[in-house]
Amino acid sequence: MASLWEYANPKKFIATSDKVLPWVGGLALVSLIVGLIWGFWFTPEDARQGASVKIIYLHVPSALMAINAWIMMLIASLIWIVRRHHVSALAARAAAPVGAVMTVIALITGAIWGQPIWGTWWVWDPRLTSFLILFLFYLGYIALWAAIENDDTAADLTSVLCLVGSVFALLSRYAVLFWNQGLHQGASLSLDKKENVSNVFYFPLLVCIAGFVLLFVALVLLRTQTEIRARRMRALLARERMG
């Protein structure tokens, strides 16, 4: 009987992802090249922001993926807790550093964008602050995985941390919104992006977002494969000790 859970078998997962990976990776490369070239050279400059608006093609997709990576980790953690598929736990582990890097890209591009527009590299705007907190959650999650020797124990503990962390990340998001409104009247520094983006910018942006999604999928597949192989190597070594 064919079921989705078949792919939770490590062997089957590696075989399938081996076939899928070149396509996903290739598509990611193509859409990133097309999207970025289109965005950088073939769109007009913004009336108010000039050329600096073009960093949007890196900033928005990476910010989206920073959040989506955490959501993917949350889902994978839930699958591990409920169905105990090892691949799921390892996929969550594999996604964490990718998500963390996406968060850093979003923060850095945000700072570079903010400098000419807001006149400062960093403001404690709710959105920026939330991303910084998200980055801290990624760090804690990665550190906990690294600190525990037993793989199953690590998978269990990090899943619980991911669940609890998600609730607190959401709480922090609202807390930060409340806090900043309390500090500064009106969010004069935050940009409402929907208002700014017209179709000319919108389509290359979509291509870039697709590129980032595909890049994320490819990286996570690749890293999950690596994790599975590392895990198997540890199991083989343990088996050797058993004699």
Partner: peptide
């Protein structure tokens, strides 16, 4: 046995 072993990690 190694065959079973390949199916999972252990």
């Amino acid at each position: 046995a190694l065959h079973d072993f390949d199916e999972a990690f252990l």
